[in-house]
Structures are given as C-alpha cells and as structure tokens.
C-alpha cells in the first residue's frame, strides 16, 4: 500500500561510530523446524539451528532469538510481503507477526565498538566469545536490545522504538571517552 503519509522513525544522530540503519521489514516467526524450512524457501535465507547465530544473504537475514523464535530482517525492502511467507508456510502451525515498526536498528562500529557497548552490556564481546554472526537478546543498561555482530568491528543493535532516545543517549555519553566532543 502506498501512502503519502510521512514515515517518521525515532531520531538517532549519526556520528563516526553510530548510525541509524534504514527502514526495514521485521518479522517474528515462531514455530517448529517445518515452518522454518518452508519459510526459508521463499525468504532466501535458511535458519540457524545453532543458538544465538544469525544467517544472512544479501539484504536479508534470519536471527535466532530463541529455540522457536526467529527475527527475519530485510534491510532493503520496507514492505517485504508477509503474505508470500504465510502462503509458503501454509497450514504448518506457526506464528508470523509483522513488527517492522516495533524497533529500529542502529549500527555501532569502529575500534571502540566493544568498549562502548560494554559500557552497558554485560556480555563478553571479545571476538573469541562473541564471534561474527553471533546474535542475542540482551541488555544495555536498563534497555533490552538485540545485539548482532556482523563484522569484527561492527554491531547491529535492534532497539524497541521508545527506548531509542535512551539507548542512543547512553551510548553517546559512554562514547565521549573515546570520541571527545
């Protein structure tokens, strides 16, 4: 559906180490392996059977969030079709829910990315403990985030939209040590 209405996501000020990622389609798929197999055929990315791992292909990705819960991302297409997936999965018991507007994505990158995130995130972000491709729900101070490392020095962070101001403000305050303002 095309609308002339203005689309307005919570604002994140871009800096050397932080930027807001563009609008994306976000879907939560829950159900068993059969549903995922059917979905993978049309989504074009398979689903990691290993916990806390993301798989990606082009602009699309699937992120393991729980044993039966995956986040489907399409970073280029803001209207990737739910109907196509629903049709492909058919009668296999599952839940597919569009949450595109529930959260926004920011990227934290650069040589201080780990240290900035560790200003509020209690996980071990050393490459040996949090390798490229690892993703998980976790916390950043008092906010819940999904953290996905897609490069050695870059993290994709999913934040619930109303927490954007808090998370971005927090990270900016932490980063002042590394990027004096």
């Amino acid at each position: 559906m095309v609308s002339s209405m203005a689309r307005l996501a919570p604002l994140v000020t871009t800096s050397e180490w932080m930027r807001a990622l563009p609008f994306a389609t976000r879907l939560i798929l829950q159900g068993d392996a059969a549903a995922r197999t059917a979905a993978a055929a049309v989504w074009g990315v398979s689903f990691s059977q290993i916990a806390c791992r993301a798989l990606s292909q082009g602009s699309r990705a699937t992120l393991w969030l729980g044993p039966e819960e995956y986040l489907l991302l399409d970073m280029s297409d803001e209207s990737a079709s739910v109907a196509t997936l629903e049709h492909a999965i058919g009668n296999i018991p599952h839940a597919l829910v569009d949450i595109s507007h529930r959260q926004i994505a920011i990227e934290i990158s650069g040589p201080f990315a780990e240290r900035i995130l560790n200003g509020g995130c209690p996980l071990d972000l050393d490459l040996s403990a949090f390798p490229i491709g690892m993703c998980t729900r976790t916390v950043l101070a008092k906010a819940e985030i999904v953290l996905w490392r897609n490069r050695a020095d870059a993290f994709h962070v999913e934040v619930w939209r109303s927490f954007t101001g808090y998370v971005a403000g927090l990270l900016r305050e932490i980063a002042r040590e590394y990027y004096p303002v």
């Binding site: 559906m1 095309v2 609308s3 002339s4 209405m5 203005a6 689309r7 307005l8 996501a9 609008f23 595109s100 507007h101 529930r102 939209r161």
Partner: peptide
C-alpha cells in the same frame, strides 16, 4: 489515509469511540 490500520470500535469513555492502530512510524502523520 493510505496507511494500513486495525480499526477498533471500542470505548473507555462511555461514548461512541474508535481506536485507530497504525504502524508506529506513521503515528504522527495519521
């Protein structure tokens, strides 16, 4: 206004009422 909606007829006031649900990025415009 061209934006997908889940339109509820519901009232927490006792008057005739509606609740317009739209994807949040469109909330301000709608």
């Amino acid at each position: 206004c061209g934006v997908p909606t889940r339109l509820f007829r519901v009232s927490f006031t006792g008057e005739m009422g509606f609740e317009v649900n739209v994807p949040a990025d469109y909330g301000r415009a709608i």
